[in-house]
Design a protein around this nucleic acid. Structure first.
Length: 932
RNA sequence: AGGACUAUAGCUCAGUUGGUUAGAGCGCUACCUUGACAUGGUAGAGGUCCCCAGUUCGAAUCUGGGUAGUCCUACCA
C-alpha cells in the first residue's frame, strides 16, 4: 500500500468492476427498496447540486443493498424540451442556420444527434461520483416505452374530461414562440416608469387620467375602469372615451377591482394583454383587441403607423405621439415586477392563444389527501405546507408547447379545426368515422416536459404494461429532490400517479437544500463562483480554473472581477480530493434540509480522514500479515479463526467492540432519519477518535512487548482486523471506493468472504457485545493518560522524556484498573515508573492532577517549575470555583430544591461534592507548592 | 401583502422531550518527525447561544414582540 491515500488510482477501477459484474442490479431477494433518480437533463452536465443529491441517494441505495433488500435505483435522463432545443438552436445559430431553414424533421434529427453525442456526459459524471444505479435499465423520457406511456396518459385524461383545449391568455415567450406555464415565469422587481395619460371623453365633457406601466398596450384598450364608489368619477360611469391614437370609442365602467387609492383611480383595460384585465373583460363582456403577433410586435389590429413595430419601439412611439397631442401628463419612476421566461430571460407577454390544458382541481384534491393522510410524508415536514398552499390554489396546467423537441400531442384536426384525440391518425379515423376524403393534420405542438417526467415512477417500470418490475417496485420508497421542483415535478408526479396507478408514487419525499458557495451565494456562471464537483475529485490547477470560470463571459469587467476572486479564494487551484472525500463532505453538511454552504476547506479535512483510514489499515495489515519490503503480503498471520478460541480479548478489545456497536447504531439511525450529518459525524468520531487515537495505540504495547501472551496478541490482532473490516462495511455507503479497496485486502484476515464489499452485510448493532465494564475501564485509563499529558503539555515536559508517576488516594477500583493497565499506561503516557501510595505514604513534591477522587502525581524534581505549577493549579482552581459557585447558588435556592425533581437535585449535590473535594485537594497542593 | 425558514466559537455547522462544565471540523497558539499517518500527534486559547420581555425552581431550547438575512406564494394599473 502507498504511504498516503491516492484516490485517483483506485476509483475508476473499482467502478468498472462493479458495473461490469452487474452488482448494481436488484438482487431479486429480500424486501423491495426503490429510488427513482430525478432524471437530469440529457444534455446537462453535473453540478454541485447533482453531486449532493446523487450522493444522498447512493448512500441510501448502498445501505439498503447491504441490508439485503431487493434494491433498485432506477436511472435515466430527461429530454428537457426547451433547454435542449435551445442548445441545439444556438449551435445552429453559430453556423448561421435557423431551425426553420432545416424544417421540423431535419431539426429533430439534429437534436437526436446532439443527444447521442453529449447525452453521455452526465451519466459518465454520475459514475465518477460512485453512484450505483442499475445502468442496464437506463431510460430516457423520449424512448419508445415512454412514448407509449405518455400517449396513453394523454388519451385517458382526455377521455376522462381532464384534458381540454381552450383559448385564453397564456404566458407567451416571444423569443421561443411558445406558451410556458406559470412556473416557468420568474418575476423580478425592476426599475420602470409609470406614465400618466389623459383620455378625453367622447362627449367633450371632460377627461380622465389613466396611469400605466405599459403605454403600448393602450392600442388594445377596450375600456377604462373606475371604482363604483369613487365620488370623483361616479358621474362618468356609462359615458365613453375616445381612445387617442386609435379613435375607438370605449366605455367607462365600474368595477370593485379598481383600487381608488392607487394612481389616479382610473385603469385602462386591455383584456387581450393583461391577466386581470382579461378577467374584467369577461365580467363586463368587453371585446378583446389583440395587438401583438407571435414576436410581440404590433399586428394589423393597431393603427397602420404602429404595425410591425417591436413592442418596446411601439412604446416609445406611443408616448411621443401622446405627448405631441398634449395628452401626456407625467412620467414617474416606478418599480414593478417584470415577468421573464426562466430560460430565455425575455419579457413574457400575456397572449391569447389556443392551448391544451389539464384540469388540475380533481387531481389536486386526491394529491392533497394523500399527503394529509400521511400516505406521502415530506422530510422535513414544513415542506408539506408549501405543497398544500400551492395545491389548494392550483391553476389549470397549460401543457402544450410550441416547440419541436418533445412528445407530439396525439391530436388530429380536420379542416374545420375540430380536434380528435387518439393513438394515431388511423385510430382517430376509426373512432370517429372520419373518411379518408377528409384531411387530418396532427397537432404541431409538443407536451410540456414535466408532463412526461410526471410519469417517471411508473413509466420507467413498464407501465401501461403490468410488468413484474412495476408490481415489485411501485410505489417507490423515497424521492430525493430539491424544493425548487416540488411544484414542477413532485406535485405533478403525485397527481398523475394517483390518477393512473391509484397509489402514491413514493412514500417519502426527502427535500434537501441548495448547494451554495462558502459565502452562502447561489452558484452561478455569471457570478463566477461555480465549483464543478469533478474538479474537486480530480483536482484542477489555478489557470485552468480561472479559464473555466471566465470562459464565455460577455462583460470584461465581470471577467476581471471573477478572475481576481478566484485567484484569491483558491491560489493553488484544487488538489485532487477524490470522490470519497467529496461525498463525505456532502454528508457532513446534509442536516435538516436547509441550504448548505460548501466550503472547500471542509473537503480537505475529509480527504485527510480518508488518509487516516488508509494508514490505520496499513498499520493493521502490517501487524496481521508477514510482508515484504514493499508491504505486500507474503503470508497471513493467525488473526484468530472464526470459531477458534485460542485467543484472549483484552479490556481494550472489548471496549472497541462495544464502541463499534454504538457507532453501528448511530450510523443506522442517521441514515434512516436522513440525518447524514449525524451518521457521518458518528462514523468519523468512531474511526478517528476511538479506533485510531486510542484503540490502535493501545494495541501497540500488546503487539510489541513480550509481556503479553500469544493468546493475548492473537486476540488483539483478531479484534483489530475484525473491527476494521466491520467499520469498512459500515462506512461503505458513504465512501464506496476506499472501503472496497481496503476491504479486499483485509476480508480474509477477518474471516469474511465475498467478491465485493458492496454486497457484503451491513453491520448491525448487537447489544450483547456492549461491555459496560470495559467501557468504564478504558475511560479510567484515558482519564489517567490525559491527566499526565495535561501536566506534560502545560509544564513543557518533552514527550521524549520518560517520567515517574505516583497514585494517591485511590480506591480499590482504581487499584484494580491500574494493575490491569500498567503496561498501557507506561507506554501511552511514557512513564518510567508507577508507584501506588497507600494512605499515610509520603508523597514527593509533585505536579498533580485528579482522576475522579484519585490523585496522580508527577514528581517535580528536575522536571517542573514551581511557578508554572502554581499557575496551572490556580487556573484549574478558578475554573472549578466558578462552576461550584453556580451549583451552590442553585442548591441554596429553596425553590429549586423544592420544585425540581429529586434526581436533578441529587445530581447537583453530587456535582458540588465532587467539585469541593477536588478544590480541597488542589488548594492543599497549591499551599504545598507555595511553601517550597 | 401573506407565509416559511434561519440567527450558537474567527469560518462552516451540530445541539433530541426545557436540567451539559454549550460541542465538532476548519482556522489560530505552543510543543513534537515517537516504528500507520506532518493529509500526523499532544496540549491550549476562543462563546452576552441576535436583542427585549414573559412562562418556569431552571431557557440556546417554550411563548410574545423586535432586528437582520434567505426563500416561497400572490400582486395595483
Amino acid at each position: 500500500m502507498e504511504k498516503t491515500y491516492q484516490p485517483q488510482s483506485i476509483e475508476t477501477n473499482w467502478y468498472q468492476t462493479w458495473e461490469n459484474n452487474g452488482y448494481f442490479k436488484p438482487s431479486g431477494e429480500g424486501n423491495p427498496y426503490c429510488i427513482m433518480i430525478p432524471p437530469p437533463n440529457v444534455t446537462g452536465s453535473l453540478h454541485m447540486g447533482h453531486g449532493f443529491q446523487e450522493s444522498i441517494m447512493d448512500a441510501l441505495i448502498r445501505y439498503h443493498r447491504m441490508l439485503g433488500d431487493n434494491t433498485l435505483w432506477q436511472v435515466g435522463t430527461d429530454h428537457a424540451g426547451i433547454a435542449t432545443q435551445m442548445v441545439v438552436e444556438r449551435q445552429l445559430d453559430a453556423q448561421g442556420i435557423s431551425r426553420h431553414d432545416l424544417g421540423r424533421d431535419k431539426f429533430i434529427e439534429k437534436v437526436w444527434e446532439w443527444k447521442e453525442e453529449s447525452g453521455g456526459t452526465i451519466t459518465q459524471q454520475l459514475r465518477r461520483l460512485g453512484a450505483s444505479p442499475d445502468w442496464s435499465r437506463e431510460r430516457f423520457t423520449m424512448d419508445d416505452g415512454f412514448y407509449k406511456a405518455v400517449q396513453e396518459v394523454f388519451i385517458r385524461l382526455y377521455e376522462d374530461g381532464l384534458i381540454y383545449r381552450g383559448q385564453r391568455l397564456v404566458n407567451w415567450d416571444p423569443k421561443l414562440h411558445t406558451a410556458v406555464s406559470d412556473l416557468e415565469v420568474l418575476s423580478e422587481e425592476e426599475d420602470g416608469h409609470m406614465w400618466h395619460f389623459r383620455y378625453p371623453l367622447t362627449d367633450g365633457s371632460g377627461e380622465l387620467v389613466v396611469a400605466t406601466t405599459r403605454p403600448e398596450t393602450m392600442l388594445g384598450d377596450s375600456a377604462v375602469a373606475v371604482h363604483p364608489e369613487d365620488e370623483r368619477y361616479k358621474d362618468m360611469i356609462g359615458k365613453t372615451i375616445t381612445l387617442p391614437l386609435v379613435g375607438r370609442e370605449i366605455p367607462i365602467i365600474a368595477d370593485d377591482y379598481v383600487d381608488m387609492e392607487f394612481g389616479t383611480g382610473c385603469v385602462k383595460i386591455t383584456p387581450a394583454h393583461d391577466f386581470n384585465d382579461y378577467e374584467m373583460g369577461q365580467r363586463h363582456g368587453l371585446p378583446l383587441y389583440n395587438i401583438f403577433n407571435d414576436d410581440a410586435a404590433i399586428n394589423n389590429e393597431a393603427p397602420v403607423k404602429y404595425r410591425g413595430l417591436d413592442r418596446f419601439d411601439a412604446r416609445k412611439m406611443v408616448v411621443e405621439d401622446l405627448d405631441a397631442l398634449g395628452l401626456l401628463v407625467k412620467i414617474d419612476p416606478h418599480k414593478l415586477k417584470v415577468p421573464r421566461g426562466d430560460r430565455t430571460g425575455v419579457v413574457i407577454e400575456p397572449y391569447l392563444t389556443n392551448q391544451w390544458y389539464v384540469k388540475t382541481q380533481p387531481l389536486a384534491d386526491e394529491a392533497i389527501k394523500a399527503v394529509e393522510d400521511g400516505d406521502i410524508e415530506f422530510v422535513p415536514k414544513q415542506y408539506e405546507n408549501m405543497y398544500f398552499s400551492w395545491m389548494r390554489d392550483i391553476q389549470d396546467w397549460c401543457i402544450s408547447r410550441q416547440l419541436w423537441w418533445g412528445h407530439r400531442i396525439p391530436a388530429w384536426y380536420d379542416e374545420e379545426g375540430t380536434p380528435y384525440v387518439g393513438r394515431s391518425e388511423e385510430d382517430v379515423r376509426k373512432k370517429h368515422n372520419i373518411p379518408e376524403s377528409v384531411a387530418l393534420k396532427q397537432d404541431d405542438d409538443v407536451l410540456d416536459t414535466w408532463f412526461s417526467s410526471g410519469l417517471w415512477t411508473f413509466g420507467t417500470l413498464g407501465w401501461p404494461e403490468q410488468t413484474e418490475m412495476l408490481k415489485t417496485f411501485h410505489p417507490t420508497n423515497v424521492l430525493v429532490t430539491g424544493f425548487d421542483i416540488i411544484f414542477f415535478w413532485v406535485a405533478r408526479m403525485i397527481m398523475l400517479t394517483l390518477h393512473f396507478k391509484k397509489e402514491v408514487p413514493f412514500s417519502t419525499v426527502y427535500v434537501h437544500g441548495l448547494v451554495r458557495d462558502n459565502h452562502g451565494q447561489k452558484m452561478s456562471k455569471s457570478k463566477g463562483n461555480v465549483i464543478d464537483p469533478i474538479d474537486l475529485i480530480d483536482g484542477i490547477d489555478l489557470e485552468s480554473l480561472v479559464q473555466k470560470r471566465t470562459a464565455g463571459l460577455m462583460q470584461p469587467r465581470m471577467r476581471e472581477k471573477i478572475e481576481k476572486q478566484t485567484r484569491k479564494d483558491f491560489p493553488d487551484g484544487f488538489t485532487p480530493y477524490g470522490t470519497d472525500a467529496l461525498r463525505y463532505t456532502y454528508y457532513s453538511l446534509a442536516s435538516t434540509g436547509r441550504d448548505i454552504n460548501f466550503d472547500v476547506g471542509r473537503i480537505e479535512g475529509f480527504r485527510n480522514f480518508c488518509n487516516k483510514i488508509w494508514n490505520a489499515s496499513r498499520y493493521v495489515l502490517m501487524n496481521c500479515e508477514v510482508q515484504d519490503e514493499q508491504g505486500n503480503r507474503i503470508e497471513a498471520q493467525d488473526c484468530g479463526q472464526t470459531g477458534s478460541s485460542d485467543y484472549e480479548l483484552s479490556v481494550a478489545d472489548r471496549w472497541i467492540i462495544s464502541k463499534l456497536q454504538l457507532a453501528e447504531k448511530a450510523v443506522a439511525e442517521g441514515i434512516e432519519s436522513y440525518r447524514f450529518d449525524l451518521a457521518s459525524q458518528a462514523l468519523y468520531d468512531f474511526i478517528w477518535n476511538e479506533y485510531c487515537s486510542w484503540y490502535l495505540e493501545l494495541s501497540k504495547p500488546v503487539l510489541n512487548s513480550d509481556d503479553f501472551s500469544a493468546a493475548q496478541k492473537k486476540g488483539t490482532r483478531r479484534t483489530m482486523v475484525r473491527v476494521l473490516e466491520t467499520t469498512l462495511r459500515l462506512a461503505h455507503p458513504l465512501m464506496p471506493f476506499i472501503t472496497e479497496e481496503i476491504w479486499q485486502r483485509v476480508k480474509d484476515l477477518a474471516g469474511t468472504e465475498g467478491d465485493t464489499i458492496m454486497l457484503a452485510a451491513m453491520p448491525i448493532c448487537d447489544d450483547s457485545l456492549i461491555d459496560e465494564q470495559a467501557m468504564a475501564d478504558v475511560e479510567w485509563l484515558k482519564g489517567v493518560i490525559e491527566g499526565v499529558r495535561n501536566i506534560r503539555g502545560e509544564m513543557n515536559i518533552s514527550p521524549a522524556k520518560s517520567i515517574p508517576l505516583y497514585f494517591a488516594n485511590g480506591s480499590d477500583n482504581d487499584q484494580r484498573c491500574l494493575n490491569a493497565n500498567t503496561q498501557f499506561l507506561q507506554k501511552l503516557a511514557s512513564l518510567e515508573s508507577i508507584t501506588w501510595l497507600n494512605a499515610g505514604d509520603e508523597a514527593p513534591m509533585s505536579a498533580t492532577g485528579l482522576v475522579g477522587e484519585m490523585e496522580i502525581l508527577v514528581p517535580m524534581a528536575g522536571l517542573i517549575d514551581k511557578d508554572a505549577e502554581s499557575a496551572r493549579l490556580n487556573k484549574e482552581i478558578d475554573k472549578i470555583k466558578k462552576d461550584a459557585q453556580r451549583v451552590e447558588g442553585k442548591l441554596n435556592n429553596p425553590k429549586f430544591v423544592d420544585k425540581a425533581p429529586e434526581a436533578v437535585v441529587q445530581k447537583e449535590r453530587d456535582k458540588l461534592a465532587d467539585m469541593q473535594s477536588a478544590l480541597g485537594k488542589l488548594e492543599e497542593q497549591l499551599v504545598k507548592i507555595a511553601a517550597l
